[in-house]
């Protein structure tokens, strides 16, 4: 049960955190209304559900609690960065493929974006996000373990 909790926590927290962060940025730049109306409910549901699925799969590749107990951090950081990059690449690839083959909202149309730039940015952001998530969970785990919180 503990392992299931770890996967659900890390996978869902990443999906939810990324989504809320993105909505916050779009809201502060006053682009949210336009993007939301253009994307629509059904594609937005698919995009969110697919991201959630990928983050759960990515989280299943990490064993953070066991690593915190044994002090084996390096492998977890490597796995975190790889999982972050993998999630970004798979997610963007599918979004672009859908954009190529189906007529969808302009915000998702690959013709409106530099694909290499988006993929490059996705790889960097995915790796950094993976490292951040691993560092955050390991730091929390170590702190609470040492302090008997």
């Amino acid at each position: 049960m503990g392992r299931v909790l770890e996967i659900v926590t890390v996978g869902t927290a990443v999906a939810v955190g990324v989504t809320i962060g993105l909505i916050l940025i779009l809201h502060l730049t006053d682009d949210l209304r336009a993007v939301a109306v253009e994307i629509g409910t059904f594609p937005a549901s698919l995009l969110f559900g697919y991201l959630w699925l990928l983050t759960l799969v990515g989280a299943s590749q990490l064993t953070l609690e066991a690593a915190a107990k044994e002090g084996a951090y390096r492998t977890q950081f490597e796995n975190g960065a790889i999982a972050g990059i993998g999630i970004s690449l798979v997610y963007l690839t599918v979004v672009f493929i859908i954009g190529f083959v189906a007529s969808g909202p302009a915000a998702l149309d690959p013709a409106n974006h530099s694909v290499f730039l988006v993929v490059g940015a996705g790889v960097v952001v995915g790796a950094l996000a993976g490292l951040f998530v691993v560092a955050f969970v390991l730091a929390v785990s170590q702190y609470t373990r040492q302090r008997e919180y």
Partner: peptide
């Protein structure tokens, strides 16, 4: 996340 890690 902190709460769930503690429970874990």
């Amino acid at each position: 996340v902190i709460r769930s890690v503690l429970v874990r």
